[in-house]
Amino acid sequence: MIVFKGVTKRYGRTYALSDASFKVEKGAMAGFIGPNGSGKTTSLKLMLGLLRRDSGEIEVLGHDPWVEGEIVRSFTGFLPESPIYPRNIKVRQLLDHMARLKAASRFDVARIARLVGIQDYMEHKISALSRGYLQRLGLAIALLGDPEILLLDEPTANLDPKARMEILRLVSVLRRDLGATIVISSHILPELQQVIDSIILISRGRIVDYGSIDYLASKYGARIVYAVYTGRPRILMKRLVDVDYVRGVVDRGEYVEVHIDPLAVNDFLGFLDGMGGDLVSRIEVRSGYLGEIYERALAT
């Protein structure tokens, strides 16, 4: 579990974080949501013990990161925003070295390289990698040593849409396979809402609210709208109108727009899964419910 209690961090006279308090439960996939410069990166660095807080308390699995940073970082993987790599060495050299620092084996390096899909680039110079593969390399470094906590700072920044989706899919797989607690900082909400189950909302260094998506969506009355693509819209609509958590259904021609109760996202997705691929060809989230939660939370 990660706990912040009244944490303040200043850079000179500027408050990067002001009296911040929140919790991330063990096993959660939490989205750290806020605009650029709101204090997300500072919070992640405080969790790792790379920055010193000016006041307040921080606990990461029961350890104070500033005092016991080495212990915290031994069970935490970190992907920085725009990581800087040594350009003149091979991918394998860097991964082997990072594995030694994290007390991981060469077998782990090979396993994680396969997991993130860079096994074919191990003998390439880092300078030859594309942005997408650099991000995969960062993920591989973060995953070495099978961390209990993963901190990902803007993992999809500067990537094209295809690479962004691949990285997010990978993160979901990692959570399922490793069972790690994951904190993802991002300001690209439509993507984030597909993978996270809890949120920390931050603005200008202040924590606006935090909790599970269900709880916050319900608290702020956010709507969730899906576009369900089908070749037989009438049949689909007929089945959906009888479901109690479906608030509304509209035929948009190419797809059916479905408004649902924010607390029933998983039930709804399970329901569509049960219909099979012949009725439902594709699903897209249409409403930016995270954005809606964020805006409403800020307004209160």
Binding site: L48, L50, G69, E70, I71, R73, S74, F78, P80, S82, P83, I84, Y85, P86, M98, L101, K102, A103, I141
Partner: peptide, 15 residues
């Protein structure tokens, strides 16, 4: 200065 240090210090390697 470049930020490469962050890569190494995000592991158990202490300052």
């Amino acid at each position: 200065e470049s930020g490469e240090t962050l890569l190494y210090l995000s592991t158990p390697l202490s300052k």
